[in-house]
Design a protein around this nucleic acid. Structure first.
Length: 475
DNA sequence: ATGTGC
């Protein structure tokens, strides 16, 4: 390994690696040895073209979270991850956060959005759900029901104005026939649910605007109340990941796979094509899930503030693979815990042509979040940046008691209740599971300000505005 | 991440 600059480390190809790797990381950020090994494994995929890590890198399944893997001719389910199209969405309002009873609003939102694992909300028929799997948010608009107010909200929305505010217009080329019945069963009634783990809904205040011009174009101002949503494809995406990762493992596709966890599928095989269709279906479901949640948030805001305006700023996936052209070559760019950060020149004929795409980066619960924009100089990261702060402690390390088989507690979590309480002072916290919430403590994550310093220093993206949390809803 | 695992 060789440090090239304050923000960049070069990992030369070792035996078995087809390409070098690049890490966008500073000395202040600890790099787990296993995460580096997983990154090296990704470099062993036969047709891999580029592998890089963002400063939020940490251990994942097969491939680290916080990395980009670009390859030709193969698709790599583990480089997308289990939560297909997990992503961020920001809703902007015309309100000053200081004028709003944010704790009350958060409590009210909770009544409409189930938090935590295994929850269901909007019930669909199999046919309706398949329509969402194939067309995403566009498919949602085709559903005509009357049994929930979200359908009335959808009917009133102008699809032409909404779809361009979602990456891929909230609709990838899905195919319900590539999704197992089990996956559909798990996901069919889960639209409009948050999920668990690091998923959240946060009411935030814009504390500073760094790029006034871009912020102005986007309708962002100091003191503004924003609502940030982080969620994914729930049980559906997880089952799709499981189905295709076990399929990939069971097959022998030529050269040995880099690790037991890291399998790839050639795209000239039927299974490779099928995974892409299933992945798109999972992505569509996640887009629809975040869209439904936005409407549920909107209803609650309008209940308290009938004259309020609330509009989508943007919706970005951070667990997805896409066919993109880089360095004159078309390749499958897998972003796992990484966000596309297209500059304006890659957003031609969209409303973000002038500014570049909005990049939505949450900090950990209780810390700042950031709104950024893609930079012209970020081709070296395949126009990608990080997706968040990134874990620095495992879940069990943070809060979980590591138990011996006989039930005796061997080791207490690294974060005390007192420490946790202090880090959340002044923030309304609404959570489903008080026993696991410390897994998401700010102390369990890297320092978001340092991560963002690397992102800007390495020219991956530029800060437009910074937000602080006022109220947070968690699983 | 996940109706969270032998």
């Amino acid at each position: 390994m060789k440090r090239i600059s304050e923000f960049e480390v070069f990992v030369p190809a070792e035996v078995g690696m087809k390409v070098d790797a690049t890490l966008f990381i500073s000395d202040k950020i600890r790099l787990e040895e296993d995460a580096l090994n997983q990154l090296k494994d990704a470099c062993k995929i036969p047709t891999v073209k580029k592998v890089l890590a963002t400063p939020d890198i940490h251990i994942g399944y097969g491939v680290p979270i916080g990395c980009v893997v670009a390859a030709e001719e193969v698709i790599i389910p583990a480089a997308v991850g289990y939560d297909i199209n997990c992503g961020m969405r920001v809703l902007k309002t015309n309100l000053y956060a200081g004028d709003i009873e944010t704790a009350e609003l958060a409590k009210s939102i909770r009544r409409d959005i189930p938090l935590g694992e295994g929850k269901e909300n909007i019930r669909l028929t199999r046919e309706e759900f398949e329509c969402v799997l194939e067309e995403g948010v566009k498919g949602l608009y085709k559903i005509r029901r009357k049994d929930h107010f979200v359908w009335d909200f959808l009917e009133k929305e102008d699809i032409k104005n909404v779809l361009p505010l979602i990456e891929d217009c909230g609709s990838m080329k899905g195919d319900a026939s590539a999704v197992s019945a089990r996956a559909k069963e798990r996901g069919q009634n889960q639209l409009g649910t948050l999920g668990g783990g690091n998923h959240f809904i946060e009411i935030q205040e814009v504390v500073s605007v760094k790029d006034k011009k871009t912020a102005g174009e986007w309708g962002i101002f100091e003191g503004q109340m924003l609502i940030m949503i982080h969620s994914g494809s729930r049980g559906l995406g997880h089952q799709i990941g499981e189905d295709y990762m076990s399929l990939a493992k069971s097959k022998n596709y030529g050269e040995p796979h880099p690790s037991r966890e890291l399998c790839y599928i050639p795209l000239n095989e039927k299974e490779g094509e099928e995974y892409v269709k299933a992945m798109h279906s999972g992505a569509n479901s996640a887009f629809a899930n975040r869209h439904i949640m936005s409407l549920l948030v909107k209803k609650n805001l309008l209940f308290y503030y009938p004259n309020a305006e609330i509009n989508l700023l943007y919706d970005v996936p951070h667990n997805i693979a896409k066919l993109e052209e880089h360095f004159g070559k078309k390749m499958w760019v897998h972003r796992k815990g990484a966000t596309r950060a297209f500059p304006g020149k890659r957003m031609v004929q969209t409303i973000f042509e002038k500014t570049g795409q909005p990049v939505l980066i949450p900090g950990s619960m209780g810390s700042f979040s950031y709104l950024l924009v893609g930079k012209n100089e970020n081709e070296k990261s395949l126009c990608s940046t990080n997706h968040g702060a990134g874990r620095r402690m495992s879940r069990t390390q943070a809060a979980g008691k590591i138990r011996h088989r006989d039930g005796k507690v061997l080791k207490e979590g690294a974060i005390s209740d007192e420490e946790f309480r202090k880090s959340m002072e002044g923030i309304t916290l609404i959570c489903e599971n008080k026993h696991t919430i410390k897994e998401e403590a700010p102390q369990a994550y890297k320092d978001i300000d340092e991560v963002i310093r690397v992102v800007e220093g390495a020219n991956l993206a530029a800060v437009v505005a910074k937000m602080r949390p006022l109220a947070v809803l968690k699983g």
